[in-house]
Design a protein around this nucleic acid. Structure first.
Length: 482
RNA sequence: GGCCUUGUAGUCAAGCGGUCAAGACGUCGCCCUCUCACGGCGAAGGCCCGGGUUCGAUUCCCGGCAAGGUCACCA
């Protein structure tokens, strides 16, 4: 049988990294076996719906490369793929009524006020368990209420005794006392289905074979199972993914500042790196490899190797991985990404491509660029003590001397390329019996005013050009009292 | 509070009765080197606790403990 998985987000905002990983795993499970990956929009909560959110979903799927085979935008054999459209067709009500006929669900006319009396507070959380009050209504009473236009919901009718067991591919068999199962609402008073119900109905109607979802649904899974059984439908394979947490081991929330894919992209992360990192949060390949393209993941992915324990989202490791992607990236693409950051700092007509090349192996995230290159634009303030370097055996005096001697050589040099400059200065050093660093250190300091730079002295000379370089060296000589 | 799940270094993680308990990030040290970075080499750091079962438990069982999740007309 062909595997069919789905990603079923609700359009309420940016794509949370937990959802992204769920989508990724669903995609990988399907594609590893040559199956289908579908997109379904779950817009049954008209309150929380956000304008433009569907576009964010499309864009994120596009940027991460998680191409769906069926969905609202491209259609497919089991559409529509938007739940509000499906509800308009009356699909959910129709199926809910089937359950009512079977005695697996019932109409409920309880008012919010009455429901409130059923609520108790535990640890600051409000907990409500319905008391099956409306289950005892006779058929006539229900008909009368409906005829009178009383608002109603339809609830699942769960048994109060016995146990329900469901199977998860990762977690194994999980049994729950039926007394724990609330009579959850299937159809809301506005006529829309709840997530719980729409999900089951649509997954079945759309032929989903593997339901991939976050582990926060683990405790409600038995109720879904009962729904499948009530309908007499085959229960899909459940794959509950472990939770992704923040550094405090709490469910990742918007407050952490990096909870969504878009947040991360804004912070300068590369989509491929995010996908790669997220794939490894809760899953590990057989090999020791860590860097995987999406297509390599498709090949390697065995969902049985998904772990069961929650994982902390580690920005430090993500940064490292992003750096790996930047280093491996072909230069033109890197330059395209880097250019805005370069131009933010540098307005002078310097060779930005050369500067980009310098910085490529030294950053983890695009915005890191800015901190490396500001001295090109403008010579920063610095202290003369910077000329003192124990290992290079330099101090202010030796530096002044070197700068003075080297200045005319540079002024006379026709060749201001990195290679030419290096051999010129190397020859000078050899001639005087100096170590290379002994002469390079003061020059680099004079040119940059920085203890560390993304390039050596000669590369900086090359980029700065003769005129600017000499002027900076002159300023340094003066600063050193020469 | 009920229920569910999880528990290998700071973090991600291999492991599936016998291992010097992989690997990666981070940290520290060394090498390379015109600084830094890259790259190379190395170090420190771990099986939640207590009982069993077993010749032998990180691994199996039981009990604790801890953490997280969940208990909506949200998904």
């Amino acid at each position: 049988m062909k595997i069919r998985t789905r990603y079923a987000p609700s359009p309420t905002g940016r794509m949370h990294v937990g959802n992204l990983r769920t989508a990724l795993y669903a995609y990988l499970i399907a594609k590893h076996e040559g199956g289908d990956f579908l997109l379904r929009i779950e817009d049954t909560d008209r309150e929380r719906e956000m304008e433009g959110a569907v576009d964010i979903i499309y864009r994120t799927l596009e940027e991460t490369g998680l191409r769906h085979d069926e969905g609202p935008d491209i259609g497919g054999p089991v559409g529509p793929y938007v739940q509000s459209e499906r509800q308009a067709q009356g699909i959910y009500l129709e199926y809910a009524k089937k359950l009512v006929e079977k005695g697996e669900a019932y109409y409920c006319f309880c008012t919010p006020e009455r429901l409130k009396t059923l609520t108790k507070t535990v640890n600051g959380e409000e907990i409500t368990q319905y008391d099956k009050h409306c289950l005892s209504l006779s058929k006539e009473e229900v008909e009368a209420n409906l005829a009178a236009g009383m608002p109603y919901v339809i609830r699942q009718n769960n048994p109060r005794t016995g146990t329900t067991t469901f199977h998860d591919e990762l977690y194994g068999d999980i049994s729950v006392d039926n007394a724990e199962l609330d009579d959850m609402i299937l159809i809301k008073s506005d006529g829309y289905p709840t997530y719980n119900f729409a999900n089951v109905v649509d997954d079945h109607l759309m032929g989903i074979t593997h339901v991939v979802r976050g582990n926060e649904y683990l405790s409600s899974a038995p109720k879904y199972n009962r729904l499948y059984e009530a309908f007499g439908w085959e229960v899909p394979v459940y794959v509950h993914c472990p939770l992704i947490t923040d550094e405090n081991h709490k469910k990742l929330s918007k407050r952490s500042g990096h909870s969504s894919f878009e947040d991360l992209v804004e912070q300068g992360f590369i989509p491929e790196a995010v996908v790669n990192y997220v794939a490894l949060l809760g899953w590990s390949p057989e090999s020791e490899r860590e860097i995987f393209s999406l297509s390599e993941l498709v090949k390697e992915f065995d969902f049985h190797r998904i772990s069961k324990s929650p994982a902390v989202f580690d920005m430090v490791k993500l940064r490292w991985m992003n750096g790996e992607y930047i280093k491996a990236m072909d230069f033109d693409r890197f330059y395209a990404l880097a250019e805005p950051f370069l131009k933010k700092v540098i307005t002078k007509p310097l060779d930005l491509r050369k500067i980009a090349a310098m910085v490529k192996t030294r950053i983890e995230v695009l915005p890191d660029i800015e901190g490396h290159i500001d001295f090109f634009e403008k010579m920063p303030e610095y202290d003369c003590s910077m000329y003192v370097h124990k290992k290079m055996k330099t101090n202010e005096e030796t530096s002044l001397n070197v700068l003075k001697e080297v200045r005319p050589l540079l002024a006379a040099s026709e060749d201001f390329s990195n290679d030419g400059l290096f051999s010129l200065l190397k020859a000078y050093a050899d001639e005087h019996g100096y170590k290379t660093g002994y002469v390079m250190w003061p020059i680099r300091t004079a040119l940059s005013g920085r203890e560390m730079t993304p390039a050596g002295a000669t590369e900086i000379l090359e980029v700065l050009g003769k005129e600017e370089s000499l002027s900076r060296i002159d300023a340094a000589i003066e600063k050193l009292g020469g």
